[in-house]
Design a binder for these strands. Structure first.
Lengths: 190, 190
DNA sequence: ACCTGAACACCGTTCAAGT
DNA sequence: ACCTGAACACCGTTCAAGT
């Protein structure tokens, strides 16, 4: 199925709206940015936005997916140190902290966002778990019991979310990440 | 200055509005609860609410203060174990998780909420710091360096916020709290 | 001082109508 | 298929008017 000019132009228009929404959502927050603002920044009537996106949640999700894809380039930061890698991840999320706070706020109202959120956490849990296991092995330390690993992954996840949400200054981010890594070892917390 | 009948009735009316707001905010969330709903649940015209509370943020703050005061009775839970005490704290906050998510969502828009939030965290940081210091001493362990203690307090704070926000099931809360306590020791994370 | 009805400027969303 | 003007049912907040 070849992409004709119509297809390209459709994508272009959609991209313009996405651009506008992205810029406004990141800078001013999702709640503060009305659909009217998005539309007029994209140069269309406000109901036109609804032709391309089902509703505001769908628009948010599209912006989120796009920003995450953009970040995933820088994602594979191969700093040798795990703590440094975590600092980099917090840095990446700092850019989109207004988006994630909007997601958290609308979790109970929007099943669409709730599902996306669950999926996202499942993915990041796997990633974090592997990072931690690899780190321990490389340090010649004992691996963690599955239950303990799960708890540590939760702690790391909440730490990242907290640092991002509270816009922590870099040196605080660094200290927290270093302590997280330093505390890493089997404890046999029954 | 004696409290006359007028004073009492004023407080009664204010209390009724606060009751209604409390019930609705906790059950349905702050965003979903309109001022109209609060007013009609309290049996007044909606603009009457504005006679008692400056705006919706002020109403949220009043509800928050009251719920926190109510909780502070159960606050001094003297479970002997620190991990158990943390589990209890998470339980207390679980009740008002819709309130705190609303606070976090409106932090950038409302200076009033931002100031309250900063004050609250300053208080809870001091409390957590003391709890951790006392625990280490009671276990005959070395105290943490000030910088490391500060980082650990951040980690614990974010863990509590995360568990509350994500409505974690009790056994997950227990596992996370146990691991947090078990990991507690000086690490000299440079 | 306390409370109201009516209005204001918004909001997200929908719909009938145009091309 | 794509886009619009106009409307809908809300929202938080304000204001002039009543007691």
């Amino acid at each position: 199925m070849p992409r004709n000019r119509a297809d390209v132009e459709r994508d272009a228009k959609q991209e313009e709206i996405l651009d506008a929404a992205s810029r406004l959502f990141l800078a001013d927050g999702v709640e503060t940015t009305s659909m009217t603002k998005v539309a007029s920044a994209a140069g269309v009537a406000k109901n036109t936005v609804y032709w391309y996106f089902k509703d505001k949640d769908a628009l948010l999700l599209a912006v989120l997916g796009r920003e995450l894809r953009l970040a995933s380039g820088a994602w594979e930061v191969q700093a040798p140190d795990l703590a440094d890698r975590m600092v980099a991840v917090v840095g990446l999320f700092a850019r989109i902290d207004r988006l994630s706070s909007a997601v958290h706020a609308r979790l109970r109202t929007s099943p669409l966002l709730a599902e996306w959120h669950a999926r996202f956490h499942a993915g990041s849990d796997r990633w974090l778990g592997r990072e931690i296991e690899v780190h321990l092995r490389s340090q010649g330390q004992q691996p963690l019991a599955p239950e303990e690993l799960a708890a540590v992954v939760r702690i790391w996840t909440y730490a990242i979310e907290g640092l991002v949400a509270h816009e922590a200054p870099v040196d605080e981010v660094r200290r927290v990440c270093r302590v997280l890594v330093a505390q890493l070892r089997p404890t046999a917390a029954s």
